[in-house]
Amino acid sequence: MDELRNYARELLEKEEVAAVIGYQQVTEKRTKPIVITDPAETSRLVFNEYCLNNLAVYLTKARIRSLMRTKDKTMKLAIVAKPCDVHSIVALIQENQIHRNDVHIISFNCHGVVKDFGCDFNGDNLAAKCIKCETHKPLYFDKIFGEEKQTPKAGDASLEKINELEKLNSKERFEFFKSEFDKCIKCYACRAVCPLCYCQRCITDKAIPRWIESSSHQRGNFSWNIVRAFHLSGRCTGCGECDRACPMDIPLSLINRRMAMEVKDLFSFVSGRSLETPTLVGNFDKKDSDEIFM
């Protein structure tokens, strides 16, 4: 922990970065995001199994980016990122939302985080994304801390659920999602926490014309959740923040994960894994499968 704090303090003191986006401890089993500009505050930084948030979401926020520019120079933003959060950063770079040179990635060898604050860290309480995780070491980083440790073993309940839904007929599946989407209250927490939902103005907020009804009734909820699923296909990196943020416990990442599986099958593309490959939607190939057209 001290290594991290000292490193972050030095970055700020040497004015290599304008701010450090990291985690601070709130209670024993809860952390929260903190944006540090004052080197003295780096003593609050932590990294542990309770660092659930995907902080990449802050990299595109105008108010955070405004910290980068002072009168006479432009500085980077340092971000504390789990290896899976690095995927989101990579996806943002691929999509030209940020530049690689604008971020200073401080990452860790990660052995998983808990599914929710307040839980003990063990196989039963492992976050869904950690169960299927294949990247315990970050793919890209500017500084890495921590030793490699074994991730607790756990069953992949979300994959089981996807398989179970696959077995249903389309009507039954529709009923399942209908009952889930009925709960939606349109607080847009799923959108707010998603690093890839970076649009300055979301299609749901556009009123002329009104593409998506703002009411949280069945039709409005379906339009929003389907649009969300499509807009994130080939872009979602599977961080699962939407699941965690949803106050109504709608299993949103089931949809995103299923779409990611589709994208992988059809185009052999996984979002946020390589800075060299172009984005999925930005790269048309004549050999691409036609199966996406219904």
Partner: peptide, 15 residues
Amino acid sequence: GIGNVCLSCAQCAFV
């Protein structure tokens, strides 16, 4: 300070 961290959703208002 709060404005830097808050992500502008309405979870708080709706619950």
